[in-house]
Amino acid sequence: MSHRPVIELHDVWVSYGPIPALEAIDLVVQSDDFLGVIGPNGGGKSTLLKVILGLVSPDRGRVLVLGEPPERSRSAVGYVSQRPFFNSDFPASVWDVTLMGRCGVKGMLRSYDAHDRTLAEEALRTVGMLRTADKQIGQLSGGEQQRVFIARALAAKPAILLLDEPLASIDPTMQTEFYEMLQKLRREVAIIMVSHDVGAVSVHVDTIACLNRQLYHHGAAELTQEVLEATYQCPVQLITHGPVPHRVLKEH
């Protein structure tokens, strides 16, 4: 996979009325990146994703996605929202939901063809949900639904995959399996994953961004106490995962 910038944010400022959400963000994501974005609730993590999707336009600054304004490159960005709002009795099968991923790429007034179905099938196989294709989406568990929503995003063959708190609806025992799936996916697509689970994220991603209105750190996924405290603006208990689990506790 090539190494080229897919997302470029230069001095991006966003506010909701008088409330600032993002301040002076400079961020470049490469095509082979697996970036974890951490930070406190209300720190602008979801806003950052919305800026990349072109759903929120910044007050100031420049955003380029694949070298174009974000509204123009939506079909190349796969998005999996934190908690999709849908009625659990909605009449759609797993297959229908996956095909929805082709909708934006396909354009209006055209129906899905064999190519769309092939890509949907591939996507379902990638996330390991092909056997559930005929089931109604509401009958799946939260974690299984999450996989289907990732398949829906992948069906569009995106260059970038945005995951907003993907672990929120996943059983802790399934999380390892979920990360293994992401490790496979990252060979094909740049991944940006937003999460508040600092420990788990820092083990699995290779670059990390700490966001609390401003970008406090962007680089290798090794976090220091200082960076975390600056991001969360309070003393933080750093727990590192590794071959020998140990926690670092500082006096505060």
Binding site: V77, S81, D96, M108
Partner: peptide, 19 residues
């Protein structure tokens, strides 16, 4: 607009995100 209406009635936020 059958396919658009399916996406839109399922999840408006996603529909907006894919344009």
């Amino acid at each position: 607009f059958y396919k658009e209406y399916l996406v839109l009635s399922f999840d408006e936020e996603y529909a907006r995100a894919v344009g």
